[in-house]
Amino acid sequence: MNAGRPDRRPVTPMREPTYFVLASLLDGPLHGYAIIKRAEQMSGGRVRLATGTLYTALDRLTSEGYVRLVSEEIVAGRIRRSYGLTDDGAAALRAEAQRMAEAARLVTRSARAAGPGRVGRKVRPA
């Protein structure tokens, strides 16, 4: 998929809104408001993208080659653009998901090794 091209995986962790903007496009191209709704749904209501944040993220992701403009249509007299994930964007999203899974595994593994009593134990205030 990425043959012949340099690895464009991010070297720094993605910010959460960026992650969910990319994740919302996994099932296919969406327009601005649909991305906001999908990101909110996927994050269980935790990530509620503001319009300004969404378009700043889309501008950056488009310039980085992670997102591309798929279609334009006129709805109620206004232009509506749909955006889709590129191959690089999908690879970056997978890399980020893997990084977070590895980070999570570190904690769950050491918590399991320490036994059930250590996790969630109440700490007495000093």
Binding site: R48, A50, G52, L54, R80
Partner: peptide, 25 residues
């Protein structure tokens, strides 16, 4: 395009966009 998204994301009864939308803009 942004206006369309902003109007869709804002409840119709409001006269102004929400504070967090205004801050983000």
């Amino acid at each position: 395009e942004m206006l369309g998204t902003l109007l869709e994301a804002t409840p119709e009864e409001r006269n102004w966009p929400r504070a967090r939308d205004a801050r983000a803009l």
